[in-house]
């Protein structure tokens, strides 16, 4: 990252402009050096080794690369890694773990809300985001909330069932 370096009228192409990115990922301070052209999804997977975040369309359509950045669900293929400097990120690995799944993960598990699992990060984060804003979502609310995520297995009905189940569970769970 540069706030002072001169712009590249002709970068010395043998020297790749690079940045050290320091951020909090899943409650852990992390730091990595990467070329400025690195996408956040590439940083998360290739530098931080968190492979639950998937690189799908790289076009902002499929949602498989979704993470939470500073409280907002975000498609990490649409962010340059240096732009994530100083942020707090939760990836799908930070939601829960075997034996202690997030309630939304439990609902997806119980209702067979995923098949190949590729789109799962986006579906989970979109569901959590929906339930953060809406306790009792309608089917239209659910479909609208999932609209930024594409399931290549086309298992949408099971996903909607899973979200409905998660909504019922979280509504029953006292704060």
């Amino acid at each position: 990252m540069s706030t002072t370096q001169p712009p590249g009228s002709a970068h010395a192409h043998d020297e790749l402009p690079s940045s050290t990115v320091t951020l909090i990922v899943n409650d852990q301070p992390r730091s990595a050096r990467c070329p400025d052209r690195t996408l956040l999804v590439e940083l998360i997977r290739d530098e931080l080794g968190l492979f639950g975040t998937h690189a799908g369309c790289l076009n902002g359509d499929c949602g498989a690369c979704t993470v939470n950045v500073d409280g907002r669900i975000t498609k990490s293929c649409l962010v340059l890694a240096p732009a994530a400097e100083g942020t707090t990120i939760t990836t799908v690995e930070g939601l829960g773990e075997p034996g202690a799944l997030h309630p939304v993960q439990e609902a997806f598990w119980e209702k067979d809300g995923f098949q190949c699992g590729f789109c799962l990060p986006g579906q989970l984060f979109a569901t959590i985001d929906l339930l953060d804003h809406e306790d009792a979502p309608s089917d239209d609310d659910i479909r609208g909330a999932l609209a930024g995520n594409i399931c290549r297995c086309t298992g949408y009905q099971k996903i909607i069932d899973s979200v409905r189940c998660a909504a019922e569970r979280t509504a029953r769970t006292p704060d």
Binding site: M1, S2, T3, Q5, P7, G8, H11, H13, L16, P17, S19, P35, D36, R37, T38, L39, E42, L80, P82, A83, E85
Partner: peptide, 13 residues
């Protein structure tokens, strides 16, 4: 992967 060796700037003004 972006192929161009871009430089990222986050100026304050």
């Amino acid at each position: 992967m972006i192929r161009t060796n871009l430089r990222y700037h986050a100026p304050f003004s």
